[in-house]
Structure formats: structure tokens, C-alpha cells
Amino acid sequence: MKKSLLALVLLAQAATFSIAKESAEDTKQDVAKHRAIAAAHLAAATCRESGKDEDVCNKELQAACKGLAIGKFCGMKHEH
């Protein structure tokens, strides 16, 4: 009985934490990260439009995204 009650309490706590809203500051930081990632991708598109090689543009993208997103393509990669 005690184990069941403990499990129920832990489950309730987990549910409470999972539905908690993020703070306004967290939202502001998230938006800023998305804008920075978008700017890096826009720069990569501009790089490719200028006629530069894909490898050169990818290296610039990687440098611009360092610490922003997951993966060497700034959290996003499309097929070629």
C-alpha cells in the first residue's frame, strides 16, 4: 500500500512539473535562440545564392551556430 501511494504521489508531481508553463524570461530566451538560428540559416542561403561552394557555406553555418543548436547543420538539415 505504501509503495502504491508513493508511486501515485511521484506520478502526480511529475505531471505537475510537465504541465508547468515556462516563464516569460524563458520564452524570451527561446525566441532569441530561434531568431539567431534563423539568421544563421538566412546567411547560409545568402552564401549559396552568391555562388559560393556548399562546403564553404556549411562551414560558415557551423561557425555561426556554434552553441545555438544541435548538430553540425544548426539543428536542421534537408536532403540533397
Rank of each mutant, 00 (worst) to 15 (best):
E79P: 04
K52Q: 10
K72Q: 15
S23Q: 03
A38D: 05
G71I: 07
D26A: 07
L6A: 15
S4D: 09
T27A: 08
S4W: 05
A39I: 07
C47R: 02
V31K: 08
D53C: 07
L68S: 04
K21W: 05
E49F: 03
I19N: 13
A38Y: 08
L61I: 01
K59I: 03
V56K: 13
L8F: 06
S23M: 01
V9P: 02
A44W: 05
M76T: 12
Q62R: 13
A63H: 11
A20N: 07
R35V: 11
L6E: 14
C47Y: 03
H78T: 04
I37S: 08
L68K: 02
E22N: 03
L5T: 08
A15V: 12
A7R: 12
A32M: 15
D30Q: 07
L11F: 12
C74M: 09
E60W: 03
A43K: 04
E60C: 00
G67T: 07
D26W: 00
M1Q: 11
T16K: 13
T27Q: 06
A36H: 00
G71F: 11
E79Q: 10
K66Y: 01
F73A: 14
E79V: 09
L8P: 01
A20R: 13
A44I: 01
K72T: 13
I70Q: 14
S18M: 14
S18Q: 14
L61H: 01
